[in-house]
Design a protein around this nucleic acid. Structure first.
Length: 491
RNA sequence: GAUCCUAUCGUCUAGUAGGUUAGGACACAAGACUUUCAAUCUUGUAACACGGGUUCGAAUCCCGUUAGGAUCGCCA
């Protein structure tokens, strides 16, 4: 008896993986990990029109980035392959043949024009929309005349009775069969539809639990009908609540970034994404908001999945991400940050080389100030290239004059020159002493210096910044500011 | 239009055998700290969609209403 838990994530290669897909993948993955099961990746590429060449790679990259490793899949194979549906056409066809023989399916020669018109009339007359069974009872004699024209294979849905569906989180629901139309199994191009392929694959791949989005709930009776006709045992269904955008409609492009790779590009950490997405429609208890990958795989429970759809909140994601940034140790964070900024900074940093070592001094200063990796840029910019973009007003502290400011800056150069060793602590002490002797507040002093050195109102802690820049560079920057104040017209 | 799903602070949620000052987190506001910005700490505002029942007692059980969402493709 084989009761091993086997789940699958089955995206179609039509583009990027969006947040909803990823959440589905996460729940499948967690469920497999928690129960020592198998996580299968299956590519549902039965739509030749929407097929995107690069999509499979994008999908696998996204999954890998998120750390959702699969045990069986198109690239690594497995006992129940192949894992691309396009490579399983023979299987689908043989089953289709079987259904045709037992009269559970029939060929339909209706043109798309007829079907479209049918739908229009149904809509206009406010009738139930769906295939009207035109070819359902056409005799085989008539059909032979049509043998040359294109046909689809339709499932012959029982016209009476009910199909009942038991879902782990929604309970048992019943659907009258007469409301289900004769849906298509095989398209004119010979490829199966989702309804058909997914049932066959789930069966042959021995999938025990199907965790998929709520939007499939209404078509599940169709799938159940196929299982029944083939005398197969259906898997256990778990329909996951849908993720909504900020306007409560289904998450889509309108809501900004939806693809997982966009989040990667914005500097979100994979573990933070995992944490945040896991908590969308699932909760461990009444207080946990930060939960590690490991803990998640230990404590994930199906019965804690909520029934209602949830809105995706970018603010909470940012907060969770900031928590992960802060708890990553400095060295680790530094290399993450380095590779994140590398491409951009290699050429951008004209005045000072962008190296792992140099960055490692800076990283601790911004660690608690950024929510996402890409926010780092605003903070550390000036470390790598000098830019004087301040105005005279910005250099002059509150309640001070131009002359006093120039004096203050000149005095600061002297102070810094005499600071040895040149470390933050001593710089701190000496500048404070200087402020007292000039009879100004440390606030005033640092305000002006900060602008002169970093060209920003808001910057990392100044004493550490000065130490990292080193004495020569700092003094040069202050000299520039003085020069600017003394000869503004030339600039 | 038909079928199905759902309903606790603005948002994510706890509440699973009816009895809680309805808890936590994000966000927001105020204060403390402070070298700018953060971080941190304290405090605060804020919810059971509505209407009927059942019950001594309902966020919790039942019925109805409303609202939102999904599905109804030779897309998945």
């Amino acid at each position: 008896m084989n009761d091993k838990i086997r789940v699958r994530f089955a995206p179609s290669p039509t583009g990027e993986l969006h947040l909803g897909n990823v959440r589905t993948a996460i729940f499948n993955w967690l469920f497999a990990k928690k129960n020592d099961g198998v996580f299968v990746l299956r590519i549902e590429d039965t739509d030749r029109n929407r097929y995107v060449e690069t999509a499979v790679e994008t999908i696998t990259n996204s999954l890998q980035w998120m750390g959702l490793n699969w045990d069986e899949g198109p690239d690594i194979g497995g006992e129940f392959g192949p894992y691309n549906q396009s490579e399983r056409l023979n299987l689908y066809n043989s089953i289709a043949e079987k259904l045709l023989l037992t009269n559970m399916a029939y060929k339909c020669y209706c043109t798309t024009e007829r079907l479209q018109q049918l739908r229009e009339t149904q809509t206009k007359n406010k009738q139930q929309i769906g295939y009207d069974g035109y070819c359902r009872n056409t005799s085989s004699n008539q059909k032979t005349n049509l043998e040359n024209s294109k046909f689809v294979l339709r499932f012959r849905v029982p016209q009476s009775g009910i199909t009942s569906l038991t879902d782990s989180i929604h309970g048992t629901k019943t659907f009258p069969n007469k409301l289900i139309d004769d849906f298509i199994l095989i398209k004119t191009d010979g490829y199966p539809t989702y309804h058909f392929a997914n049932v066959i694959d789930d069966h042959y791949m021995k999938i025990s639990h199907v965790l998929r989005a709520d939007e499939w709930l209404s078509s599940t009776p169709k799938h159940l009908l196929i299982y029944e006709s083939l005398e197969w045992k259906p898997p256990i269904y778990i329909h996951l609540p849908i993720i909504l955008g900020s306007d409560k409609s289904r998450l889509s492009k309108r809501h900004g970034a939806t693809s997982i790779m966009e989040y990667k590009a914005e500097g979100f950490l994979p573990d933070a994404m995992l944490n945040a997405l896991s908590l969308l429609g699932w909760a461990l208890d009444d207080k946990t908001t930060i939960i590690s990958r490991e803990e998640l795989t230990k404590k994930f429970e199906l019965d804690k999945i909520s029934k209602s759809p949830s809105m995706f909140d970018i603010e909470k994601l940012k907060w969770i991400n900031s928590q992960y940034i802060r708890t990553t140790d400095n060295q680790n964070l530094n290399s993450i940050l380095y590779s994140f900024l590398e491409n951009n900074y290699k050429e951008k940093s004209k005045d000072y080389p962008f190296t792992l070592k140099y960055l490692s001094q800076i990283t601790p200063l911004i660690k608690e100030r950024i929510n996402t990796l890409n926010e780092a840029d605003d903070w550390i910019n000036f470390f790598f290239h000098d830019c004087r973009k301040y105005t005279i007003e910005e250099l002059i502290p509150k309640n001070m004059t131009l002359e006093n400011t120039i004096l203050l800056l000149k005095q600061s150069i002297l102070t810094l020159q005499n600071t040895t060793p040149f470390n933050a602590e001593l710089i701190n002490n000496n500048l404070r002493t200087q402020a007292v002797s000039l009879d100004i507040s440390i606030r005033q002093l640092l305000g002006s210096l900060r602008m002169a050195i970093t060209a920003q109102k808001v910057a990392p802690p100044l004493f550490e910044t000065i130490e990292i820049l080193n004495k020569t560079r700092t003094i040069k920057l202050i000299e520039k500011a003085i020069d600017f104040l003394e000869n503004p017209v030339n600039k």
